[in-house]
């Protein structure tokens, strides 16, 4: 832990900013009910009330408090994106490790399956499936996790391939260790650095993707407070020169920039690149 702080102290300003942003968002998401002055879906006044007074950032199109919904959005939007990324890593990471360890037809089968899935653009694939199964939070998480698992699989397999051929893995195999042990105890710890960086990048993709879907009205469904759909619902205000609808989009952008800065720093450190 102290090592982490020391590293952070020496990290560039952008990475420190990124860490700060992530911590603030996590706190907002966890403490949402305490921090928000009004309920998530509570109608507290007229639609499109201006800033100030009881409502710090005014109200939205239905008269719900914008500030409260922004805070709850941290919980919903970030939460769903995080769940989808985690699931994508579970599926893709495990499959990638197994493909690298087993090789042969298991590897061939999984790799070709992923090739086919990756041949379809992600947004189009998601829209196709969501139009069939309907847009619920569960289907959203599952569909996105499955689509992103393909990308995670590619990377995990490529990184694990380099580890699998090393002597200590061979030694473990000769000891008679099972597949689970080999994957989690031998290969995984040695592929952790690139995978953690990939987790950050993947999270950004998923987060932007879910925001885009919600913005299109096909992601997280009302009345749940969600940054993408909040932009869409209040977009009318923009034509009057009011910046309120841009705040949720800004919230998305700031978190993504923050995570990207941190990942950039980590990649820079782990690659040992100077300049």
């Amino acid at each position: 832990m102290t090592r982490l702080f020391k590293e952070l102290y020496r990290a560039p300003l952008s990475a420190q900013f990124g860490f700060l942003v992530i911590i603030v968002y996590v706190l907002l998401a966890v403490l949402a009910p305490v921090l928000a002055p009004f309920g998530e879906t509570e109608i507290v006044g007229d639609g499109f009330a201006p800033w100030g007074g009881d409502f710090l950032l005014g109200t939205d199109n239905l008269g719900r408090d914008m500030f409260s919904r922004l805070i709850y959005g941290a919980r919903n939007t970030v939460g769903i994106a995080f769940a989808a990324t985690l699931l994508a890593f579970l599926i893709g990471g495990l499959a990638g490790l197994v493909a690298a360890l087993k090789s042969g037809w298991v590897d061939q089968g999984l790799s070709r399956l992923v090739d086919i899935l990756m041949a379809i653009p992600q947004l189009i694939f998601a829209l196709l499936i969501l139009s069939v199964v309907g847009t619920t939070a569960t289907s959203l998480v599952l569909v996105i996790a499955l689509l992103d698992a393909t990308r995670v699989f590619r990377l995990t397999r490529a990184v694990a391939m380099n580890v699998v051929v090393q002597d200590f893995v061979e030694a473990a195999r000769l000891r008679g260790e099972g597949l689970w042990w080999l994957a989690t105890r031998e290969v995984l710890p040695n592929t952790a650095a690139p995978l953690i960086a990939e987790f950050g990048l993947r999270f950004c993709f998923v987060f932007l993707f879910i925001s885009a879907l919600s913005f299109l009205g096909l992601g997280i469904q009302p009345p749940t407070a969600d940054w993408g759909s909040m932009v869409r619902d209040n977009a009318v205000l923009i034509t009057f020169g009011n910046v309120t609808p841009l705040l949720p989009a800004l919230a998305v952008a700031v978190l993504t920039v923050g995570v990207n800065f941190v990942v950039d720093w980590m990649l820079h450190k782990s690659s040992g690149l100077k300049g």
Binding site: S211, G228, L246, V252, V257
Partner: peptide, 28 residues
């Protein structure tokens, strides 16, 4: 890096805000 991190609709609305609402150069 920032531009990659922005949602497309954010970039779009910022452009609308500047060039169509404030400056009135292009239709929104």
């Amino acid at each position: 890096l920032s531009a990659v991190s922005f949602p497309e609709f954010f970039v779009a609305y910022i452009l609308i805000m500047i060039f169509s609402v404030k400056l009135g150069w292009f239709p929104s």
